[in-house]
Every structure is written in C-alpha cells, then in structure tokens.
C-alpha cells in the first residue's frame, strides 16, 4: 500500500516533466520539423543513391568484357592503371555476386563466379602495392567468367 501511494504521488509529480523531456528528446532527434525545400533536397539525394554508376556493367554478360577492358597493358607492356581506374575495378569486382545473382546462373555457376573475386582482388592488391601483377591469374579468372556468360547465352538460345 505504501509503495502504491508513493508510486501514485511521484507519478503525478513526474507527468509534466515527462512531457517536457519527451518534447526535448523528439525535437533533438527530428530538428523540430523540416521545410519543403529540405524535403525536396532529400528527395534528390534518395534518387541519387539509386543512380547506377557509369562503370557498373549492365549485366553478367558485360562483366568479363569490362574487367578485361579496364585492366590491359599499356604501350610499354606494363600494367599501370590510374588510382581512379583501380577503384572502379575494385567496385566492379565487388559487384560480381550481385551481377551473378541477377542472372540465370544456377547455384554452381554462381559459386564459381563468386570464387573468382579473391583472384581479382589479389591482382589489384599487387598493383596497389606497386608490384608487377600476375596477369595470368587475372586472365584466367576473366576466362572463367566468360565461360559462364557464354553458357548462359547458349542456354537462353536453346530455350528459345
């Protein structure tokens, strides 16, 4: 009984401070509302997030071609991509699972495609470290992806 009375008493004393505390916490979180221009600005950001990067291959078929094209030897026979190109290559390698999943590859093909990722990363790490990369590893991985892409193409043709 003593506890119940005490609870009731303190509850009555606290109820107004709760409202104040709640208002302060919520204003802190939301910034007390937003203007129309803020909302419009955010909307642009939302759409910009979903914009497709220019160097992202459209589909799995384009993937091996893009990887091959963006890492080739220059006139002197050396492999020296710019920092920007290296970053783009890393991103393309990172998209392998997504592009493979967004194709008709079955599980075994998907796993083969994903297993090429560390090989590409190894070559890119060598380039980043200033060493001469093992292009045989890169090319073999590209070939694997190309085989999968060809297989997909022939399956699609057979179905038609």
């Amino acid at each position: 009984m003593r506890l119940a009375d005490q609870s009731r008493d303190v509850f009555q004393r606290l109820q107004y401070s709760w409202l104040l505390t709640a208002a302060v916490l919520l204003c802190l979180t939301s910034g007390c509302g937003r203007s129309q221009s803020d909302d419009e600005h955010e909307h642009e950001h939302e759409h910009s997030h979903h914009a497709r990067p220019a160097h992202k291959p459209d589909n799995f078929h384009e993937l091996p071609r893009e990887l091959q094209r963006r890492l080739s030897r220059d006139e002197s026979g050396a492999v020296r991509p710019s920092q920007r190109r290296q970053q783009q290559l890393r991103e393309i390698v990172g998209w392998i699972p997504e592009l493979a999943a967004d194709s008709d590859l079955r599980r075994a093909g998907f796993d083969t495609a994903v297993s090429q990722q560390p090989k590409f990363q190894q070559v890119l790490d060598e380039i980043a470290a200033g060493r001469s990369p093992d292009m045989a590893v890169w090319n073999a991985a590209v070939d694997q992806l190309q085989q999968l892409a060809d297989q997909l193409k022939s399956n699609a043709e057979n179905q038609q």
Partner: peptide, 21 residues
C-alpha cells in the same frame, strides 16, 4: 506511461523526418 513516448513521437515527429538522421 511507457506507451506514451511512442505516441508522442507519432504526434510530433513529421512524416519521414528520420530517414537521414
């Protein structure tokens, strides 16, 4: 009392105002 907090948020926070916070 515990539920009053979520109610107050539903009353005072403008729609979709926490998307970027």
């Amino acid at each position: 009392t515990g539920l009053s907090g979520v109610g107050l948020a539903g009353a005072f926070l403008p729609p979709n105002s926490l998307q970027h916070t």
